[in-house]
Nucleic acid binder design. Sequence first.
RNA 1: GGAGCGCUAGCUCAGCUGGAUAGAGCAUUCGCCUUCUAAGCGAACGGUCGUGAGUUCGAACCUCACGCGCUUCACCA
Length: 593
Amino acid sequence: MVPREVSSLIGMQYCLLGTFFVVILNYGGTSMDGKTQVVEAIKKALPDVNQEDIESKIERPKDNKNGDYAFPTFFLAKIKHQAPQMIAADLVKEIDQSGFENVVVAGPYINFFLNKAQIAAGILSDIITDPENYGNANLGNGGNVPIDMSSPNIAKPMSMGHLRSTVIGNSLANILTKVNYNPIKINHLGDWGTQFGKLMAAYKMWGSEEEVKADPINTLQKYYVRFHQEDKENPALDDDARAWFRKLEDGDEEATYLWKWFRSESLKLFMKIYDLLGIDFDSYNGEAFYNDKMDEVVQMLEDKGLLQESKGAEIVDLEKYNLNPALIKKTDGATLYITRDLAAAIYRKRTYNFVQSLYVVGNEQQNHFKQLKAVLKEMGFDWSDDIHHIPFGLITQGGRKLSTREGRVILLENVLDDAINLARKQIAEKNPDLKNADEVAKQVGVGAVVFHDLKNERLNNFDFNLEEVVRFEGETGPYVQYANARAQSILRKAGNPDLTNVNMELGDADAWEVIKMLGQFGETVQRASREYEPSVIAKYSLQLAKGFNQYYAHTKILVDDDEKLARLALVTAVSDVLKSSLSLLGVQAPDEM
RNA sequence: GGAGCGCUAGCUCAGCUGGAUAGAGCAUUCGCCUUCUAAGCGAACGGUCGUGAGUUCGAACCUCACGCGCUUCACCA
C-alpha cells in the first residue's frame, strides 16, 4: 500500500525548491498609469473630497469618444446642492489640463483624453525592455499555494471533466506565479477505493493479461462497465467486489500486485496526455498516500471530543454550520472520502505551510468542501479559512451528466486527436510549406481544446459539442495564436530590428486602441488571480488579438516612414503580451501557423 | 423541503466595484486577398437583460417575492 515511488520523491524535491524560492522580480512598469494621472488632477481641483471616493467613481467609458477615463459628478450633487451638469462645468475649469491631450465636459461627466503618444511610448517601452516580467505583481510574497487538481481515477479514462480540473488548475498555477505566489500542483489521484474491488473481481472473472496490456485503460474500463451491467442482475457480484477490496486493504499479495499493475498502466497513459497538454505536477500523492494517515486524524477528532456515534457510524455534528453531519467512519469502521481529505489537508499544511490551499474540483462537490472546512474549523485550525474550493461547471452531453458507470464518457484522448488532425488538415490547406507542420498542428489543436475550456467562466455548465470545441475561427485559441503568428511574420520580414531605444510615440487612434489594452494587462492578471478565474485572461487575449487584427487590417506596418520602428515596437509588444497571456492559460504560441 | 449555481440576440456567452445609445462570437445575408499569413477585416440582420415589486438622480448589476433549469442533501468519491 505504499504509494508510488515517484510521487514521494517529487514531493520532497518540491519542498526544498519551495524553501529557496526567493526571487527578485520586476513588478510593474515604470511609467505612471493613466488612472493615477486622472486621480491626481481631480484631487487638486477637489481638495475636500477624499481620494478613495474619487478613485472609485472614475470609470473607463465604453465608447472612446467619451475619452480614456471619465469622472461622473452625480455623487457631488447632494454635497454641493447643485445640478451635476453645473458641477462638472465648474470643476473642469479648476482642473490642470497640462498633462492631458484634452479634458472636456459632457453633461454630468468630465472626460479625460490622455496624452496618447507619450503614454503609448511608456507602455511599449515597459513591455519591450522586459517582456517576461511585464504584468507581474507582488500579491503573494512567495507564499505556498498547493493546488489540488486533475485527479483522474486509476483504471478509468480521462474525460472532459478531468480536463477542466487539469487546465483550470494549471492556469491558476501560472497566474498565481505571476503575482508571486508559489503554487504546488498536486495530482490527487483516485487510486484507492471500492472500485478497485469491482475491478479485481471483474478482471478475475473475464479478464486476461494480454488484453489489458494491449490497451490498459479501455480494457479495464470495459470490465468495469460490464461489472455494473451484470451486478444489476446478480447482486452477489458486489460481495465478491467487497471481498477483493478487503483483501487489498489487508495487504493480500495478489490484490496488491493487481492494484500496482492497474495503477502504473493507467499512469503511463495519463502521462501521455499530460505531455500533450504540456502540464506537469509537483506531487502525485493520491488517495492511497493517505491510507496510513487517517488514524491520526480520527484520534485527533476523538481527543477533541468532536466524534459522535450516530446510527452506528462515527460523525462530526455540523449543525451550527447548517450542514449535514460529516461521516468520518462507516458502520463497518471503514473511513470515508472526507476522512481522507482531512488527512490530506493537515498533511499539506504541515508539509507546505500554505498561505492558501486550493481544490479545483467540480461544483457538485461543494457540500463536501464546506464540510471539510467546517470540521477543520471545529478542530481549532484557523487555517481552515485559507482553504478554497474552486468549483467548475458540469460538462454534459445531450443535456445529460456524463457517467463512467454507464459508459457514457467523452474520451479526452479522442477529442485531442480530432483537434490535432483537423489542425493538420488546415495547415496543409493554408500553409503547405510550413516546416514543422506536425508540431504546430499539435499546438493549434490542443490549444483550441484548452482555450475552449478556459474561455468561459468556470462555473458555467457546458454541453459538449465536438464541432464547437475544435473550432478555429472566431473567439477561439487559434484566433489568438494566429494574431501572434501574424505579428511574428511581420517582425521576421522586418529583419527583427533592435527596438530598445527607438522613439515609440504613436498617436493615431488605431494604434491607441491596441496600446490601451496592452496597458491593462497587469490589472487583468490581478483580477484573474483575485477571482481564481482563467477566463478573465482568455477574454483579454481575445480582445487584444481582435484589436491587433483590426490594426493589422487598417494600418500598413512595413512602410518606410518616421513611425515604422514605433509600429514595429507595437507589433513586438502585442506579440509579447499575447504570448504571455496564452502561456498563463497553458496554451502554446507558435511563431508560424 | 434545505443548501448552492444559473436565466442577457436563433445558438454559445461578455458586461470589472450600480453610470452616458446593452456588447462579442457562431449562424444567416452581403462586401474586401496587384504582394506585411483571408485561421483575417468590414457591413447588415438580430434583445420588453426569466417575471413582479422595492432601493437610487440612475438597475442587466443591489434587496425581496415568484417562475423555470441544473447540482447537492450521512455510510460512493
